[in-house]
Design a binder for these strands. Structure first.
Length: 798
DNA sequence: TAGACGGCTCTTTTT
DNA sequence: GAGCCGTCTA
C-alpha cells in the first residue's frame, strides 16, 4: 500500500508525523526534513479526521517560511487552506487584532509602524519630554521599550529596574509616554502586536475560549526562536495560559513544536532557547522526537558543521549524519581584499556556469548587509545576474516610505509620524520652526498635528487641505486607483523626477510599483472567514487600504515578482535560514566580522556562541559544495581594516578543508596593495595562527591538483582556466578599485607632513585612490589615524 | 526661517 | 556609505 503522505519518510519522521494529539517536540537538525514533517503532519491530521483546516494554526518566523509552508500544504493536500491560520507571529496577531480591534482597545484602522518609525516616535517623545539625546540615546530607549514588551511588561508593570539599566527611571517614564503617544496616534509597533494580542486573550474570556476551541492543533516552526511573550501567547491559545487556572474542561489542544537549539540565532531579539526545555517541562511533553539524518549535505560539509557546533556549551545534543557519502571538501580561499574576494566568487561562479550550472544554484552569504555592495559591483561588472534578498527592502526605501506616509495619513489623520514625514516631502517651506509651533499648538489643544495644521495660519494649512482633498478624491475609488491618485496628488512623483534625472527611473518606478503591489495584494488577499456571531466582534469593516498598509509594514516586500529569473542569490546568513543551495559561498570569514565584534562585545561568550550557531546555519545551507573565503584587508565604512581570519576556520578540522591559496601570500598581497604599512614593517600579520601550518603541509597536494581543470597555484596568484576560456585571477594585478598610488592626483604623497584645522599636525601614511575619490590616511600627532577625503578635508601641506 | 551642504561619526542580524 | 549635525546662504 502506498501512502502519499507517509511514503519516503524515515522512521523518526514518520513517528513525528503520526504522533497522538499531545504536546510534542521535534528536535530537527538542519536539513533533516523539518518542513516536510510539519506539512505532512498537517496533512495527516486532516486526512485522519483529527483536525479540520479551520482548527489548525501554524506559526513561523519569516514570511518566506510561511509562504513556503502554505504552498507545500496546498500541494500535499487537496484541501482548501483558506480557513487555516498560517503565518508569522506578527501576521497572526495582526489578523486577530483586526477582528477584535475594539476589544483590544485599538482603533479599527490602527497602523503598524516599523522599527525606523518607532525610533522616530521615541525621538518625538523625548523631545516633548525635554530629554535630550545626550542624557540617553533614543536607540537605548527603543531597546528598553521593546525588551520589556517582549517580556510581556507594560510600563505600569515595571516595579523595579535592573541597576544596570542606564537612566532606568528616565527610560521607564519615556516608555509610559511612548505608550500614550502610540495610543493617541493609533499606531502599533511590532512588539505591540504580540503584547496586545496576548493581553486580549488573557483578559477577554469569551475571545480566549473561542480560540481555544477553534485551534485544536497548534504547530510551531523554529520554536527555538520564540521569545518569552510568544511562548506565553502559544500557551494561552493552547489553554495553559492563565496562571493558576486549570484548563477548561474539554479542551485538548496540543502544541506540536519543531525546533533546533543549534539554530537559535535570534537571541538578540529576545529569543529564548530555554523555551525548548521549559516547554517540555511545563506542558508535560513526553514525546521528543529527534531527526538527525540529514538529507541535504554531503559528509565533509556535515562533519565540518558538527565539529564547529561541538564547541558550544549547553546543547541539547544532536549529531547529524548522512548516507550520501563524503562529497567534496570545503574550499577555503584567502584573498587580499574584499574586492579580490568578490572577484574570486565571481570567477568561480562564471566557471561553473560555463560548465552548465545555473546561476540560481549559487548562494553568496555574508554576515552583514553592508558586505553585499562589494560583491554586487563585481558581479555586475562580470555580467553575472544576481538577486539580493532582504537588505534595503522595497517598503523600507525612503521614497517608498514617503508615499506610504501619505497613504497612512489619508487613512488615519492622527498618525503624527506619517504627518511629520509627509508634511515637507517634497519641500513645501515647512521647516523646524513651523513644526515646533504646530506641535505646541497640537499639544495644548490635545489634537493631532493634522488638526493643528488645519487651524494654523502657516503653510501647513495648505498641506492639511491637500490631504483632506485627497481623502475626498479617493473615497469611492478602488484600492489600486486610490494608491495611484495619492502618489500623483502628493506630488512625490514629480519631485522625484525633478530631483535628479539619473535616479528618475528607479525611484519613479518604485512609486509605480506601489500600485502594482496593491494590485498583487488584492489578488492574494485572503478573505477572513466569518467569525462566529457569538463573539463580540467589531463590525467595522477593515478598509483595504489599512490592510494593505499593514502588510507593507509586516512584509516590507521580499520581492516576489523577481522570482523565476536565473540569478545568483545573495543574502545575510540570517535570511538564509531554512533555505538550501547546491553551492554556497560564505564570505567575509574574518574575526570581528564573522563572528561579529559587537555580538561578543555586548554578550561575551553567549554572543560568541550565537555567532557560532549562525556559522552552523551558514554551513548547513550547502548541499554539494561550500566555499569559505576571507580577506586580509577590508574597507569597512571607508576605513581600511586589517583583518584576521575567523576563529571559526580554526574550529573546522583540516581534514575537511581544501585550501585554494596560500593565506600568507594573500596577506602579502594586501600589504603590497597599500603603501606605507606604518610601523608594521614586513611582519607577517597572521603569524601564530594554527591553521596556516596546514597550507604548507598541503602544498604538494596543490601541485598535483594543478593538473586538473580547476585551478593552479603559482607564486602568490591563484589562476584558473575554465574550458575554452582563459581567465586569470590575481588580486594585485586585477584589483579594480584599490590601486597602489605613490602620489595621488593632487600631489598627495605618503610621508607628506600636513596640517588639519581640527586635528592639527600629522603625516600622510597612505594615499588610496578608490574610484574617483582620493582618500588620505593621516596619522596625527595627537595620536589618531584618520581617513580623510583629499577633495574635502582642508589639509594644508607643511 | 528654510534648505543646502560640508564634514563628522558609527557601523549586526529582523518581524 | 549613510545619517546626523552645525554652518552658511538666500
Amino acid at each position: 500500500m502506498t501512502d502519499p503522505l507517509l511514503d519516503g519518510l524515515n522512521p523518526e519522521q514518520r513517528e513525528a508525523v503520526t504522533l497522538p494529539d499531545q504536546n510534542a517536540l521535534v528536535l530537527a537538525g538542519a536539513g533533516s526534513g523539518k518542513t516536510r514533517v510539519l506539512t505532512s503532519r498537517i496533512g495527516w491530521l486532516i486526512r485522519e479526521g483529527r483536525a479540520t483546516p479551520g482548527s489548525i494554526l501554524a506559526v513561523t518566523f519569516t514570511n518566506k517560511a510561511s509562504r513556503e509552508m502554505l504552498s507545500r500544504i496546498e500541494s500535499v493536500l487537496k484541501v482548501n487552506t483558506r480557513g487555516m491560520w498560517v503565518g508569522t507571529f506578527h501576521g497572526l496577531c495582526n489578523r486577530m487584532l483586526r477582528v477584535h480591534a475594539a476589544d483590544a482597545g485599538l482603533p479599527s484602522g490602527f497602523q503598524i509602524i516599523d522599527q525606523a518609525d518607532q525610533l522616530s516616535v521615541v525621538k518625538r517623545v523625548m523631545k516633548s519630554a525635554g530629554i535630550d539625546k545626550e542624557t540617553i540615546e533614543p536607540k537605548i530607549v527603543q531597546h528598553f521599550i521593546n525588551q520589556h514588551k517582549e517580556a510581556g511588561e507594560r510600563s505600569s508593570d515595571i516595579r523595579s529596574l535592573d541597576a544596570r539599566t542606564p537612566n532606568g527611571a528616565v527610560s521607564l517614564e519615556l516608555y509610559r509616554l511612548y505608550e500614550k503617544l502610540c495610543m493617541a496616534e493609533g499606531v502599533v509597533d511590532f512588539a505591540e502586536l504580540l503584547l496586545r494580542s496576548y493581553e486580549l486573550l488573557q483578559r477577554n474570556e469569551l475571545i480566549r475560549r473561542h480560540y481555544e476551541r477553534k485551534f485544536s492543533h497548534i504547530l510551531v516552526d523554529e520554536f527555538q526562536d520564540t521569545n518569552v511573550l510568544q511562548y506565553r501567547w502559544l500557551k494561552t491559545l493552547a489553554g495553559y495560559g492563565i496562571p493558576g487556572m486549570a484548563r477548561e474542561p474539554g479542551i485538548t489542544n496540543s502544541i506540536f513544536a519543531v525546533g533546533d537549539d543549534d539554530q537559535s540565532i535570534y537571541a538578540f531579539r529576545g529569543a529564548n532557547v530555554k523555551n525548548l526545555t521549559d516547554f517540555t517541562r511545563e506542558l508535560g511533553v513526553d514525546h521528543v522526537v529527534r531527526l538527525e539524518q540529514n538529507y541535504r549535505s554531503t559528509g565533509h560539509i556535515l562533519d565540518a558543521a558538527n565539529a564547529l557546533i561541538g564547541n558550544n556549551t549547553g546543547r541539547l545534543g544532536k549529531n547529524l549524519w548522512t548516507d550520501s557519502g563524503k562529497g567534496e571538501k570545503l574550499r577555503v580561499m584567502p584573498t587580499g581584499s574584499g574586492e579580490a574576494e568578490a572577484q574570486f566568487v565571481a570567477n568561480e561562479i562564471e566557471a561553473e556556469h560555463l560548465r552548465g550550472r545555473k546561476y540560481e544554484d549559487f548562494a553568496i552569504l555574508y554576515r552583514s548587509n553592508a558586505q553585499s555592495r562589494a560583491l554586487e559591483s563585481i558581479l555586475m561588472s562580470a555580467g553575472i545576474p544576481y538577486r539580493i534578498y532582504g537588505g534595503h527592502r522595497f517598503f523600507e526605501r525612503a521614497h517608498v516610505k514617503d508615499a506610504l506616509a501619505y497613504l497612512r495619513l489619508v487613512e488615519n489623520p492622527n498618525d503624527n509620524t506619517a504627518f511629520l514625514r509627509a508634511v515637507n516631502t517634497p519641500t513645501r517651506g515647512i521647516g523646524a520652526k513651523t513644526l515646533e509651533g504646530l506641535s505646541a499648538a497640537a499639544e495644548t489643544a490635545g489634537v493631532s498635528l493634522m488638526t493643528a495644521a488645519k487651524n494654523s495660519p502657516t503653510k501647513a494649512a495648505a498641506f492639511s487641505d491637500l490631504i483632506l482633498n485627497i481623502r475626498d478624491k479617493i473615497a469611492d475609488l478602488p484600492l489600486v486607483e486610490a494608491v495611484k491618485v495619492v502618489i500623483e496628488s502628493s506630488t512625490l512623483r514629480a519631485a522625484v523626477e525633478a530631483a535628479d534625472k539619473k535616479e528618475h527611473t528607479a525611484k519613479a518606478e518604485d512609486l509605480d510599483e506601489i500600485a502594482n503591489a496593491a494590485a498583487a495584494f488584492l489578488k492574494n488577499a485572503e478573505i477572513d472567514e466569518k467569525t462566529p456571531a457569538l463573539l463580540p466582534v467589531s463590525e467595522d469593516e477593515l478598509s483595504p487600504l489599512s490592510a494593505f498598509l499593514a502588510l507593507a509594514t509586516l512584509e516590507a516586500g521580499d520581492n516576489q515578482s523577481e522570482a523565476g529569473a536565473d540569478a545568483v542569490q545573495m543574502m545575510t546568513v540570517h535570511a538564509a535560514k531554512g533555505l538550501e543551495f547546491p553551492v554556497v559561498f560564505i564570505t567575509g570569514l574574518e574575526e570581528n566580522l564573522f563572528p561579529h565584534a559587537s555580538a561578543m562585545r555586548e554578550n561575551g561568550d553567549s554572543g560568541l556562541e550565537e555567532e557560532r550557531r549562525l556559522m552552523y546555519v551558514a554551513i548547513t545551507r550547502a548541499k554539494r559544495r561550500l566555499y569559505l573565503s576571507y580577506a586580509a584587508v577590508r574597507f569597512i565604512n571607508g576605513q581600511r581594516q586589517d583583518e584576521m581570519p575567523s576563529s571559526f576556520l580554526d574550529e573546522i578540522p583540516q581534514e575537511h578543508l581544501e585550501w585554494l591559496a596560500d593565506p600568507q601570500a594573500a596577506s602579502r598581497e594586501s600589504w603590497a596593495s597599500s603603501s606605507g604599512s606604518w610601523g608594521r614593517g614586513g611582519d607577517e600579520p597572521h603569524r601564530g595562527r594554527a591553521s596556516y601550518g596546514h597550507w604548507g603541509e598541503r602544498r604538494s597536494d596543490s601541485e598535483s591538483r594543478g593538473s586538473g581543470d580547476r585551478g593552479t597555484f603559482t607564486g602568490n596568484a591563484y589562476t584558473w582556466s575554465p574550458k575554452g576560456k582563459d581567465a586569470s585571477y590575481n588580486g594585485s594585478k586585477d584589483e579594480p578599485l584599490l590601486k597602489k598610488r605613490k602620489a595621488g592626483p593632487d600631489g598627495w604623497q605618503a610621508g607628506q607632513h600636513v596640517k588639519h584645522p581640527k586635528f592639527g599636525k600629522g603625516v600622510i601614511v597612505s594615499v588610496i585612490d578608490s574610484g574617483d575619490m582620493t582618500k588620505l590616511q593621516v596619522a596625527f600627532v595627537g595620536g589618531g589615524v584618520k581617513q580623510l577625503l583629499a577633495k574635502i578635508a582642508k589639509l594644508e601641506k607643511i
